[in-house]
């Protein structure tokens, strides 16, 4: 009987002491967190992708409150999230230019010209280190799908050795842009649907040898639609700030058909 009593007392005391300790500690070590952080976290998509430049959604929320980030900073959330965030932060509503990833290479498995057979590790990063994986073009897509592996939104699939972006799923987080060892993928405005499907900065003659669909920097597009297209460094480029210009003349006249619309 006495043992039972001591057992109950000791265990009860222990429980009481621990509870008191925890209560004291939680008061003493309380962290004052801005209540807006929790509300912002509810609005944010919670993908923790880091596309905004902050280390995850929580970091973005605290930086937004500190004024280091704009309410339009979350590329994944887009216009919808930006609206809600600007209401919460009491800022003027800003429009988000929705972006999307674009693959700037058009040479699929059948069109690629190979100088050698590559038999190494099947990643673009590895193939790029070993003489460009046997590919004649030093700028073109290697086709091992490093971009597909990093995409957190399952928005890239490989079709005939070339990545294809799912326009509905892509959130422009930019992971594929950094993953591609050749820098083929870049972000373009969602509504400006024209892409130069080539990244080659070789001279026109060299590009023609390496690829049937490469940009040979002939400048026909720049003559057809001079507002948008310009050729520099042996490659045509699009000025994506000029919206609403009809580019169909340039697309039709391109001799190697490397200007595509999707």
């Amino acid at each position: 009987m006495e043992t039972l009593l001591t057992a109950v007392i000791v265990l009860g005391l222990m429980g009481f002491v621990f509870a008191a300790l925890l209560a004291l500690a939680s008061d003493y070590f309380r962290v004052e967190e801005d209540p807006r952080i929790a509300e912002i976290m509810k609005i944010l998509p919670g993908a923790n992708c880091g596309a905004c430049g902050a280390a995850g959604c929580h970091d973005f929320a605290s930086k937004l409150i500190a004024g280091e980030k704009e309410s339009t900073g979350c590329t994944v959330g887009g216009q919808d999230v930006a609206c809600k965030l600007s209401v919460l932060m009491g800022q003027a509503n800003q429009t988000v230019i929705k972006k999307i990833a674009a693959v700037r290479c058009g040479a699929n498995e059948n069109r690629r010209i190979k100088k050698a057979k590559y038999d190494g590790v099947k990643t673009c990063a590895a193939a790029n280190l070993i003489s460009g994986g046997g590919l004649a073009c030093l700028y073109g897509c290697l086709g091992y799908g490093d971009c597909l592996c990093v995409c957190p939104f399952d928005a890239i699939k490989m079709e005939n050795g070339l990545p294809v972006i799912d326009l509905k799923k892509c959130t422009a987080c930019g992971k594929c842009v950094t993953a591609c060892p050749r820098g083929i993928i870049s972000l373009r405005p969602h509504d400006f649907k024209v892409v130069i499907a080539c990244s080659s900065r070789d001279t026109g003659a060299q590009t023609r040898k390496n690829c049937p669909v490469g940009c040979i920097a002939c400048g026909i597009c720049a003559k057809a639609v001079p507002e948008v297209f310009a050729v520099s460094d042996n490659l045509a480029a699009i000025d994506y700030s000029k919206t609403g210009v009809d580019c169909s003349a340039a697309i039709q006249k391109c001799p190697t058909k490397c200007i595509v619309e999707n």
Binding site: V10, M14, F18, A19, L22, S26, F29, R30, V31
Partner: peptide, 21 residues
């Protein structure tokens, strides 16, 4: 019983402490 009590309380305490410090 007492060790489980100790561990549970300790983990809680450490969590509170780390969150602050």
């Amino acid at each position: 019983a007492s060790f489980i009590l100790v561990i549970a309380a300790l983990v809680q305490l450490e969590e509170i402490y780390l969150k602050k410090m």
